[in-house]
């Protein structure tokens, strides 16, 4: 009898290993959304995360606001000064927008890469496994979120939707971007420098931007924004600021390290960005 038991254990063990290897292989291959049961599981967990998150967040916010009261006076002084500038700036922006609209109407341009709609969402949970740098937001397909949409905060881009379930979706943060999540970007300057954000360097905690045009005009402090040429994101979402420039390992092109504009550790409110212009990636999925 013991020998039979031992045999059974061995068989269970071997079958388990085979199962796990095939599971890992399967999940590495498929990148086309989650199956229906998986969506159901994710939504159920998301529902409870939401229930737990709401009251806890309330307490955390009370603690936070007690801490903030100390700084209110100093902040108020600075903000008042800035408000004066802001008013004139707002007026100018308004003026420019109107002018832009008129000019577009004259040129018969309907919508450009820069136009997009946003959808507000709050972050309810973060993946405890930090290798992945994913957060869960409380908006899903029912609210109009689709996979591959960009996600931003008021400060700048934070990531993109990698998986939309019916009621929640999973957002891959910039700090977990690898080569499979390249972002077409431009460095804002006199001449725009085109390039790709190729991933995140976890040692320096910066994004890696590789220029494609080969002109020597990269400078520290320049802003990096999305170009919209990747086919999914709109143009003009701030990604970050160039903090240092290096030659790449072949010495042919330059690589810039980009400090993300948004704080990727402490995110509570985000906006999901849906661009107005037709996107082959997102709109084709909808038709399926």
């Amino acid at each position: 009898m013991p020998s039979f038991l031992r045999k059974r254990k061995l068989i269970v063990f071997l079958v388990g290993i085979i199962l796990i290897v095939s599971l890992i292989g399967y999940s590495l291959r498929s990148d086309s959304g989650e199956s229906l049961p998986a969506q159901f599981a994710i939504d159920t967990v998301g529902f409870f995360q939401n229930i737990l998150h709401t009251p806890l967040n309330y307490f955390v916010e009370i603690f936070d606001s007690v801490g903030e009261i100390k700084n209110v006076y100093e902040q108020n002084k600075v903000l008042k000064e800035e408000l004066q500038d802001y008013k004139t700036l707002a007026y100018q922006v308004n003026e420019l927008e109107n002018e832009n609209e008129e000019l577009r109407a004259m040129a018969e341009v309907e919508s450009t890469l820069t136009d997009y709609q946003t959808l507000n969402a709050s972050v309810v949970a973060r993946s405890p496994e930090r290798w992945f740098q994913q957060v869960t937001i409380n908006r899903g397909k029912q609210h109009g979120v689709e996979a591959n949409m960009a996600v931003r905060t008021a400060e700048g881009m934070v990531g993109k939707v990698i998986n939309a379930s019916q009621l929640t979706s999973t957002v891959q943060l910039l700090s977990g971007f690898g080569t499979e999540h390249q972002v077409s970007a431009i460095v804002d300057g006199d001449d725009s420098i085109f390039g790709l954000v190729e991933g995140y360097d976890s040692d320096t905690e910066k994004l890696v931007f590789r220029e494609l045009t080969g002109e020597d005009e990269l400078e520290e402090g320049q802003a990096v924004v999305t170009s919209g040429l990747g086919g999914v994101f709109p143009r003009g979402i701030l990604i970050g600021e160039v903090s240092s420039i290096e030659l790449d390992s072949y010495g042919l092109t330059k690589v810039a390290y980009v400090e993300p504009a948004a704080n990727l550790q402490d995110i509570s409110q985000v906006m999901v960005v849906d661009r107005d212009l037709h996107s082959t990636v997102i709109d084709e999925e909808e038709e399926e």
Binding site: Q49, L56, V123, V124, A125, R126, S127, P128, V135, T136
Partner: peptide, 9 residues
């Protein structure tokens, strides 16, 4: 559920 919410908060 609470471990993910804790990490976020």
């Amino acid at each position: 559920v609470s471990q993910s919410v804790a990490v976020e908060l």
